[in-house]
Nucleic acid binder design. Structure first.
Lengths: 358, 358
DNA sequence: GTGAAAGCGCTAACAA
DNA sequence: TTGTTAGCGCTTTCAC
């Protein structure tokens, strides 16, 4: 009696403390590890395991609340069923939206998404990538922060499927899908010119970031195309503070613009604040436009015309690209010859922040 | 000569294709796996490994670009140096801000953060938790979505350190740190009453979510305290659409409120849109307040008074709590007797959206 | 000072 | 139809 009780106690202690593995199930059912593993992996039929055996295993697994140890599986299979998403900052709504979409879509495909925030620093980004890589990740989606590319080349050397989103390096043979930042900025300046603006100032984000560079290039290209004599690009960071500071600076200059183009909505908020403080009314005394088309733009005192990036589309295509690569990797070692590099045209959402002065 | 060349070729092929493990280093340096491992783990001194040997290993590791395989380490150590962050949706800026802070702080402590988006669905949440759990996570920070708690109890049974953020279950013995939602709502109604408002309507978020319930309770408590005869709570979701719909509905009722309290900023945007469409001017014809204090509130046509949640503080405390638990776990099996359950008082940021009608 | 070998939990080639 | 065993890459006990 007492012994039975002690045994029971021991059982409970063990089952609650010790991990439940296929070995536990194997012992309890007096079946081999192989058989248990096969049943649990749904290949019982293939090995013609009897219904009886199969049921026994399944029942016991359920009773114990067995959860397969992915770490062990990864180590054995050299596969993790997880993909890494490395981005500059989750605090930026634009990126977190991407993260959300990627997460949902990949979850539906049975993958776990490991999101890692690089904090807009190249070093942290490399750290995140290395760390994720060390976990036998199946693939990676990256929004790169910096301008160095060695660690990315290392990735592709290692044969890890990688896709860039939003920001990219056209000189690397790594696929990317992004907004056509250049075209977006170009079209926006075009629109402003159509409304009679000839003095358009631009407040940019982080200078070394590809997407920012492309936008600035688009701005300059449009300025040149229209033979505008005025041009101005200030700033160096995708933050409201930067937008604020730079606008203050801009407004102190002798020659003032008639329109300000904020290269992100975070910058825009700072621009608006500065304009408000300096007593400029929008659009009467200053036209303002931006990049990103955040939801709240509709609700501002003056709804701001903005460039809408096809976030959802970008994320979807990137995932498709990545999964294709992963599957190709699994099937054989042959590399897909052509590297998909996709730019998607953004659209301008017109609101009320441009004054027609033509 | 030829043989040398072939060997060199073979070497390059192998080193680029095959993973570099301590075995590679061991073979190249003709040292045992043990020694290599020790040096790489920085315990060379402890085992009095000679400087010469140590240097040789380090040099070779560097030359090969060796990165330790975390999966194997995890399996062996039953430890992952990673913590899971499960939240309802990264698309919600409030949560993604938390994610960003948690990520940064834990990264500084040497942990990798695995963020998983539960998509505001309980099932997906359970899925995410199981999936992360199967990866030998060291601990978890969770913002729970649903109202079922079994999977959480399972977690604490298994001895996994868990901390809830923002939303919580006071009946579970799991630590949490959150805004005092109840008090926040209570104080806001108080403020409105001080400004002479007696008819305050409330547009709520997801009804079953703890934080929402607390806010609604706070609203009702304040309404009761001030003996207001009018009360109204509508809505069921933290979205702009919901806010929009519910406001439209609200404005069709015979008895109209003088103030609307949106229980989140996402809801607020919908409320503002509806009010605008119906021709209400803020604050003259309708006072509006909200919960969350998003950055853009300052820039709206009428800056909205809002309850600011101490996001950063919450995240910091939660991390501290979690790390303490993890360390306690590592040292011994004894459980810390008392469960820390912390509510932090929010502050009201007053802007211009409340009309004084007293 | 250094090394051999066991084992973390799992899968799959090979056996029976 | 089921089982034995090697090994994924790493750490650590025990041995020399």
């Amino acid at each position: 009696m007492l012994r039975d009780f002690l045994l029971l106690c021991a059982y409970f202690i063990l089952s609650s403390l010790k991990n439940i593995t296929i070995k536990t199930i194997s012992e309890n059912t007096k079946l081999s590890l192989t058989t248990v593993s096969r049943v649990l992996n749904g290949v019982a039929e293939k090995y013609r395991i009897s219904q009886f055996t199969s049921d026994k295993v399944l029942k016991e697994a359920k009773r114990l609340g067995y959860v397969p140890n992915q770490v062990a599986r990864n180590l054995r299979l050299q596969k993790s069923f997880a993909i890494g998403l490395v981005l500059p900052s989750l605090a930026n709504p634009y990126f977190s939206t991407i993260a959300s979409i990627v997460n949902q879509a990949l979850h539906a495909e049975g993958f776990l998404v490991l999101v890692s925030d690089g904090n807009e620093e190249e070093e942290a980004e490399i750290d995140a990538i290395t760390n994720i890589l060390a976990r036998n990740i199946d693939g990676m989606i990256i929004i790169p922060s910096g301008k160095n590319t060695e660690h990315f080349e290392m990735l592709s050397k290692k044969g890890i499927p990688v896709v860039f989103i939003d920001r990219y390096f056209s000189n690397l043979s790594i696929p990317y899908v992004a907004t056509d930042h250049y075209q977006g900025a170009f079209k926006m300046v075009d629109l402003l010119v159509k409304h009679g603006h000839k003095k358009i100032a631009c407040i940019q984000g982080s200078q070394h970031v590809m997407s920012n560079l492309e936008r600035v290039n688009g701005y300059y290209a449009a300025v040149k195309k229209h033979n505008l004599t005025y041009d101005y690009v200030g700033g160096n960071g995708f933050t409201a503070e930067e937008g604020y500071m730079e606008t203050k600076l801009l407004l102190q200059r002798k020659e003032k613009p008639t329109a300000i183009f904020a290269l992100s909505d975070t910058i825009l908020l700072g621009v608006l604040k500065a304009l408000d403080e300096e007593g400029y009314r929008i659009p009467d005394e200053m036209s303002v436009v931006s990049f990103d088309n955040s939801v709240y733009l509709d609700y501002l005192s003056c709804p701001v015309t903005s460039i809408s990036q096809p976030v959802s589309e970008i994320a979807q295509i990137a995932i498709r690209l990545l999964l294709t690569k992963i599957k190709a990797n699994a099937v054989s070692e042959k590399k897909t010859a052509d590297v998909e590099q996709i730019l998607i045209a953004p659209t301008i959402i017109q609101r009320k922040s441009i004054k027609d002065i033509s």
